[in-house]
Amino acid sequence: MLKYLYGLLIGIVILAGIAEVVLRVKYGFCNSPLYVSDPDFEYIYAPNQDVERFGQVIRTNQFSMRNEEILPSDSIIILLIGDSVVNGGSLTDQDSIASTILEKRFQQDFKTRVRVLNISAGSWGPDNVAAYLKKYGVFKAKLMCLVTSSHDAYDIMSHQSPVGIDPGWPDKQYKVALYELWDRYRWIFFYYLDTVLLTTEPEKPVITAENKPDPAKADTVQLDSAKQETLNQAGIRKPGTNFNPGYRQLLEIAETNKIPFFIYLHPEISEVEMGHFNDQGKEIMAFAKENNVRLINELQLGVSTKLYRKMDLVHYNAQGQIFMADNLYPLFQEYLKLPR
């Protein structure tokens, strides 16, 4: 019996060692992109990172942007601002995010270095972005584009940073990959245990590691159904009670710096299925109309649910990032008037 238990223990140790190596080498555990807290805009990726996670490369410059460093010689600069839709997170490779695609396309077509600065973070609202720009300036930009979604209308800063508190916002690397797997992703196990094994209710949308609700903002997700009488209430609902002041703050920043500014309104899955934006999306559209801000309605551009990550509510897959880049490219060209 003792010999059997000893053999079992050796086997467990060997399996754990193999799992540790696989998690580190193949999936990038203990090599997560880190975050830093900020008193003005809550949090952002830590600066000067170059990590590989889930097979995807994530790099940040000294200003925590998902970009190469800004050079003194950079004279044509666009600000592409927003939340995780723009940022891509650790499930999107650096070369697959729209900002990188656009920079490469401008370089190829115009033989000119055009910088598309990716100023974003997961769960940011427009007020987070505005606070960032107030702190660091607009980097001599010639154009500013806000990518936003309906839920941003009431996604107002709480100034309660989850960095170093919630495992989804780490400020230091884990030392053991198996512990990181348990600490950060055990909710997936319990989610499936609850929804798949212990209930017979209809399936709920699966929340991925990248769009896991931010406890600091207490998101709630409501399912959309064609049979619901209150279709306008579908989608992600934020707890704010007032329209996000960041929209007006960004407009004021653009006007002060004499920068053209427009809004790119990106729908959630439920809105793609409905064919129109919900009540919060319509408020953003009303703000744009009332303030003479150009708004690009992505629903009018042929967006499809195939462009979203599997079992996700709002985030693009790699093809979706290309779709956004394809839509933004002629708009940016129009404003910049680059000669061929």
Rank of each mutant, 00 (worst) to 15 (best):
Y4I: 11
L5G: 09
G11H: 05
I14K: 08
L15A: 15
G17T: 14
I18G: 02
L23D: 08
R24P: 03
G28W: 09
F29C: 01
F29G: 00
Y35N: 10
S37D: 14
D38L: 02
D40V: 11
F41Y: 15
F41I: 06
N48E: 09
R53M: 07
G55N: 01
I58V: 12
R59F: 00
N67W: 06
I70N: 07
L71C: 09
L71P: 03
P72R: 07
L79W: 08
I81D: 03
V85F: 11
V86C: 03
G88C: 00
L91G: 01
A98Q: 10
I101F: 04
E103W: 07
E103Y: 05
K104P: 00
F106T: 02
R115I: 13
N118R: 14
P126A: 05
K134F: 11
F139P: 01
A141E: 06
L143N: 06
C145I: 15
L146C: 01
S150R: 11
H159I: 13
Q160D: 12
P167K: 03
W169E: 06
A177G: 08
W182G: 14
R184L: 03
R186L: 06
F189M: 08
T200M: 05
K204V: 11
I207S: 02
A209F: 04
A209W: 04
D214E: 13
P215H: 12
A216S: 15
K217D: 13
T220D: 11
T220I: 15
S225E: 10
K227C: 07
N232L: 11
N232Y: 05
Q233N: 12
A234I: 12
R237M: 13
P239Y: 14
G240M: 12
T241R: 15
N242A: 14
F243T: 13
P245A: 06
Q249A: 13
Q249I: 01
L250F: 02
I253L: 12
I259E: 02
P260L: 05
F262A: 00
L265D: 03
H266K: 01
P267L: 04
V272E: 01
N278E: 13
K282W: 08
Q300Y: 03
Q300D: 08
L301K: 14
G302K: 04
S304G: 04
K306P: 03
Y308R: 10
R309K: 11
D312Y: 01
V314W: 11
Y316V: 04
Y316D: 04
Y316Q: 06
A318R: 04
A318W: 01
Q319Y: 05
A325Y: 11
E334D: 14
L336A: 04
K337L: 09
R340W: 00
